[in-house]
Design a protein around this nucleic acid. Sequence first.
DNA 1: GGGCCCGCAGGG
DNA 2: CCCTGCGGGCCC
Length: 608
Amino acid sequence: MELPCDGAGICMACKNKPPDEETLNCKTCATPWHATCLVSPPQELSDTLQWECPDCSMINQPSASAFSSGRSEEAGDLIASIRRIEDDKSLTEQEKAKKRQELLSGAAAGPSTSDCEEKKEKNDVLDILDKELTCSFCMQMLDRPVTTPCGHNFCLKCFQRWIGQGKRTCAFCRVQIPPKMASQPRINSTLVIAIRMARMSRSSIAGGAPKVYHFVHNQNRPDKAYTTERAKRAGKANACSGKIFVTVPPDHFGPIPAENDPERNMGVLVGEKWEDRLACRQWGAHLPHVAGIAGQSTHGSQSVALSGGYIDDEDHGEWFLYTGSGGRDLSGNKRTNKDQSFDQKFDKMNEALRVSCLKGYPVRVVRSHKEKRSSYAPETGVRYDGVYRIEKCWRKNGIQGFKVCRYLFVRCDNEPAPWTSDVQGDRPRPLPVIKELKNAIDTTERKGSPSWDYDEEKSCWMWKKPPPVSKKRVADGVDPEDGKVIRTIKRQRQNVSVREKLLKEFSCQICRKVMVSPITTPCAHNFCKACLEAAFAGQSFTRQRGQGRRSLRVQKNVMKCPSCIIDIAEFLQNPQIFLVGEPGADGCNRITTTASGGGKGGRKLRRV
DNA sequence: GGGCCCGCAGGG
DNA sequence: CCCTGCGGGCCC
């Protein structure tokens, strides 16, 4: 029996992680497979784009029923059938709609190419809808379905109630539920689509084609991020962004419409997913590739990312509580830091969010798989979940003991959220009751009417006041003739100078200059003697100008290495100082002796 | 799984 | 120009 790759991308057949060029994604279920482990891999490159995995291509053979663990097999069959209809180029949209409807209602189908196949699907569909798409607790159509490894489906809320009662077995078959599933249930997005399609099909009026949801496959993906000469590290850790595919300016507010998507003419759809933040950026959903908030303090915030970076965040899907940025010590060249060490203020990006709150702008929201505590986060990658409005913001004492900026986001999108089985988008909803507001300070609420609001007549969310005028240009290199985007190539850095190499190798972690009276800690960090002494006298240091390096801030009365958390109190009793020559003519110190500095694999002084 | 490192992008 | 940042890869 052939096996796909598991959730971590490991081939379940050979137990290895296949490289990208050996990974095939099924066009129907999007599951990755290891090409070299397949009995009959596709022969032509072009075949790989339309490749269907063994599970999906033999979906009606009982021996090949495994769709993938944790999913409803029958729902998988249903989706596969629906997608086969979608992919049939010989059908018009109306014919497709009719076929879908027949499939889902079990009505008589027209002449078929495969009688056996269709007969099974027809007869099973009602059963599937009755059994598989019904929650065993509430006996209703599944709402935010979660699926146990034993293959049983429950509403998220029902499941959580069950777990809350201390139960740890499947309510249906009594098989043990893994601790991870119990503590962090994730919504089964495949089932969501199945339920939604069933509903659309039932409610669709004859003649009007129901809305078709788009499934994004890898082959539609754009050029990837790339690495410069300077960024020596492998892969995308230090990559430049690939081209931006949408023609909206970086300060565009709201959904990205089809007319700004010259590549596909679809716009960015709710539920679209990307491998990582760099790919997400390329489609304009959220531009910064590290920061969680996109925006300008004078203009407003266009988008946010929920990635589990801040402990105070609280996700309820249609609404969530977001934490502002800052309050963290980023010394030591860090980009993020789990620990908060000072209060957040309403400035910079936090102020940008506050502006969007006051004006009632729509804020795009992406959720990342890195948010482990939310049931609404995707299993992998980064997903666009539509626009939200910030209804209130305030400050509170955060979990880590410092003040944090807080924002109440409430969904206001015309497309349904990726986790809901609703066919419709959002309606205005009452604000949730937020307990922490009792102890909030600096609370801000919108006074006037919001710019982005629900129109009762048109039954949709829209700009009720003109959107803010863009102050920026569309992504660099967009050809005004055809709107095609030309990738911009970053200027690459020339050879690194000897001086820079020296600085890198022998610089003090505090002053960033070549060390004077160097001391290497047991944890292998290098400092000037004076800097280290001053560090523990409670002084703080700012970086040297012009080198693109970071400030190091040290805490008073803490005997930890300024570059890491190792306690060096004992070492400081008797630090060893190495010999260093006088400054040279260029002002750069000459290292003249060899010495061992202790610590594993650290930078050690060498003769030059 | 956690620590560490660093180029990049964008705000101000 | 300097500062900041809810990444991502690698090493342990």
